[in-house]
C-alpha cells in the first residue's frame, strides 16, 4: 500500500473519530464528501492525476464515515427529513 493511500486512510479514520466523539452531525461528513468529489474534476482538469484520485478517495471515505454514523444512529438529528 502506498504511503499516500495510508495517509488518506488515516485522515479518514481521524475524522471519523472526531465526528464520533464530538457528536457532529453526519451531514457535515457527507458535505465534506461532496466537496471532495466536486473538487476531483478540477484536479483532473488541471492534469494532477494522482492527487485527483486521492481527493476522490477521501470523498468516498467521508461518505463511508457518514453512512456508518447514520446507520449506528449516532448524532442523527431527530427531525431529519424522511423524503
Amino acid at each position: 500500500m502506498s504511503a499516500l493511500s495510508l495517509f488518506i486512510f488515516s485522515v479518514g479514520a481521524f475524522w471519523f473519530i472526531v465526528f464520533w466523539f464530538f457528536r457532529l452531525n453526519p451531514k457535515w461528513a457527507l458535505l465534506a464528501a461532496c466537496i471532495f468529489l466536486i473538487f476531483d474534476p478540477i484536479f483532473l482538469f488541471l492534469r494532477i492525476p494522482v492527487l485527483n484520485n486521492e481527493i476522490n478517495m477521501l470523498g468516498v471515505l467521508f461518505f463511508t464515515a457518514g453512512c456508518i454514523l447514520i446507520l449506528l444512529n449516532r448524532n442523527v438529528p431527530t427531525n431529519s427529513s424522511q423524503g
Binding site: C34, L37, I38, P41, L71, S80
Partner: peptide
C-alpha cells in the same frame, strides 16, 4: 463532462441521509 459523469455518484451519497431508516 468531468462533473456530469460524477453526478450520479454524488447524488447517490445523500440518499441515506435523507432516508436514514
Amino acid at each position: 463532462f468531468l462533473w456530469s459523469s460524477i453526478l450520479a455518484f454524488l447524488l447517490a451519497m445523500m440518499a441515506l441521509y435523507f432516508n436514514p431508516k
